[in-house]
Simulated assay, not measured.
Amino acid sequence: MQKGIIDRFEGDFAIIEIGDHTIDIPKSKLPINVNVGDQVMIDGKTITLDSEGTKKLRAEIDALADDLFEE
Rank of each mutant, 00 (worst) to 15 (best):
V40T: 06
K45Q: 10
L64S: 12
A59T: 04
Q2C: 04
D66C: 09
K3T: 08
L57V: 08
G37W: 08
L64Y: 13
E10M: 09
I6G: 06
I32E: 14
K45G: 05
G44N: 05
T54K: 07
I32W: 01
I32A: 14
E70C: 11
I5H: 01
K27M: 14
D67K: 14
I47A: 01
D12L: 06
I15N: 00
F13C: 02
V34K: 07
D66Q: 13
E60Q: 11
S51C: 05
I47C: 05
L49W: 12
D24M: 10
T46C: 00
D38R: 06
T46F: 03
I47K: 00
V36Q: 12
F13G: 03
N35H: 14
Q39D: 01
A63H: 14
N35S: 15
M1N: 10
K45F: 12
G37D: 09
L30R: 08
L64R: 15
E10L: 03
T48I: 12
D50T: 06
H21D: 10
V40H: 00
K3I: 11
N33D: 15
R58G: 01
K29H: 11
L64I: 11
G44I: 07
I5V: 14
T22V: 12
A59Y: 06
G53E: 04
P31G: 12
K27R: 15
K45I: 06
E71Y: 07
T48A: 02
D50G: 05
A65V: 15
S51Y: 03
K27E: 02
I42T: 04
G11N: 07
I18G: 00
K56P: 03
T54G: 02
P26W: 02
P31D: 05
D12V: 12
I23K: 00
I23W: 02
D67A: 11
G19S: 05
G19N: 03
S51E: 10
D67I: 09
I16G: 02
A65I: 15
D24G: 11
D62E: 15
D66R: 13
E70R: 15
V40K: 01
K55H: 10
E10G: 02
T54C: 04
